[in-house]
Structures are given as C-alpha cells and as structure tokens.
C-alpha cells in the first residue's frame, strides 16, 4: 500500500515536471505581474534590488507570515529538545586548528552576515540569507568549544525585540494613512545605503530575528547529546 502510494506520488511529480519542462522554456518564465512590478518598483519603493521591494514592500505580509512560521517551528523544536535533558555530557574540546580557525573566521563571518543583511535593499541577499550566515557564525565558536554555555534568554530577547520592531514598523504605516506594511520614511537616492525608506530597517530586524532564532535552534540541537 505504501509502495503504491510512493509510486503514485513519483508518477505525479514526474508528470508535473515533464509538463513544466515541455510547456515552458528554461529561464523564460511567463510573467504577468512581473513586468508591472519591474516598471513601477524603482520609483514606488526606491530599492535598487527589486526582489527586496517585492519581499518587503509589495508582499510584506507574506514575509510576516514566513517569519511567523519560522518562529513557530523554532519554538516547537526548542521546546522538544530542551525537555530531553541536555547538557549532561558534552563533546570534547575541538583541536588546536579548529579552535584557532574558529576564532579567526568568526569576525569575518559576522561581517559577511551583517553586510548581506544591511545591503539587502541594494544587492542580492537580505535578512533571511544574512541571518542564516549570522547563525552559522555564532555556531562556529560552539563547535570549537562545546563546553561553553549559550545564553538562550539573551537570544530570545534579541529575537523577540527584532520581531516586535518588524511588526511595529509595519503598524506605524497605519498612522500615516497607509496600508499595513507599506514602506514609509524618506525614499532617498536609488542605490545609496540610506535609501528605500523603512526597507533596510525591516531587513535588519528580520536578519537579527532569523539569526537569533536559528542560533538558538542550532545550540539546542548541539546541546542534546546522543543517548547511547
């Protein structure tokens, strides 16, 4: 029965993929709203990276839903893992090369992560990608020295404050007679660091939230030792 279901699923997926492959040319997606957004976004939102103006401007509500999903998943995982009695037996310290390599790479990883977050409205990247890099950067010292304790409450505070400021920035648009999540503030010059209104602030909040959330999740996963 399960094999039949798996076969059915595979056949369906194959059918879907072959239809997509036959109907659409690779790299030439048929777009209707895309052209309008490409034409209107630079003046309406003022972000050099059009993808960001869609993610935070035109579809800001979707992004809020996304971080809500991520928050729920990370909270549930943390809840389950923290109940498993972590922190009894930890991995041994990393070797010389791992410890010093981690110390050396850590600031550069932080720099790359913050760069990707802060320049999200100018170049490819943004809060999610930069946040993941930040989380990886914070996980690296933990990998080298597993005995070091992680302050989950501090990570929780960062995450909560960043998430709250994301929503407050979105709500503040209501006081300016705009819809929820409409970008406000001065648009500035296209392509400069301080441009595109509230989008950089939103991405900064998003990056900190995603980074703190994933760092906490990874720390939880690393703390729980194998039950042999």
């Amino acid at each position: 029965m399960r094999k039949a279901a798996a076969l059915l699923f595979t056949l369906g997926l194959l059918f879907l993929l072959s239809v997509m492959f036959l109907r659409f040319e690779l790299g030439q997606a048929p777009m209707r709203i895309g052209k309008d957004i490409l034409a209107a976004a630079p003046e309406q939102v003022g972000a050099a990276n059009i993808v960001t103006s869609v993610v935070l401007g035109y579809r800001g509500l979707d992004t809020l839903g996304e971080i809500a999903i991520l928050f729920t998943a990370a909270t549930a995982t943390g809840l389950i893992l923290s109940g498993l009695g972590g922190g009894q037996r930890r991995d041994p310290e990393g070797g010389f090369i791992l410890r010093h390599g981690a110390d050396l790479v850590f600031p550069f990883l932080m720099l790359v992560g913050m760069y990707i977050v802060v320049h999200g409205h100018l170049t490819p990247g943004g809060g999610f990608q930069g946040g993941v890099v930040l989380a990886a950067a914070f996980f690296l010292p933990l990998l080298a020295r597993p005995s070091r304790a992680v302050s989950h409450s501090a990570l929780g505070w960062i995450e909560g404050l960043a998430g709250a400021s994301f929503i407050v920035i979105g709500l503040w648009a209501l006081t300016l007679d705009q819809a929820f999540m409409t970008p406000w503030l001065h648009q500035g010059v296209l392509g400069e660091l301080f441009s595109a209104g509230t989008l950089p602030l939103l991405y900064l909040a998003l990056g900190l939230k995603v980074g703190a959330e994933l760092a906490s999740l990874l720390a939880h996963l690393a703390e729980v030792e194998a039950s042999e």
Partner: peptide, 22 residues
C-alpha cells in the same frame, strides 16, 4: 542571485548542519 544566495545559505549550509547534528 537572491534565490541562489538563499539556497547556498539555507540548503547548503544550515540544512546540512541540522542533518549532521541530528
């Protein structure tokens, strides 16, 4: 490039890290 960055960070980095920790 946006999607590529996400795929590299989340798919290549984070997912494999989580799988390895699992």
């Amino acid at each position: 490039p946006d999607v590529a960055l996400t795929e590299a960070a989340v798919g290549g980095g984070l997912s494999s890290l989580i799988l390895a920790l699992a």
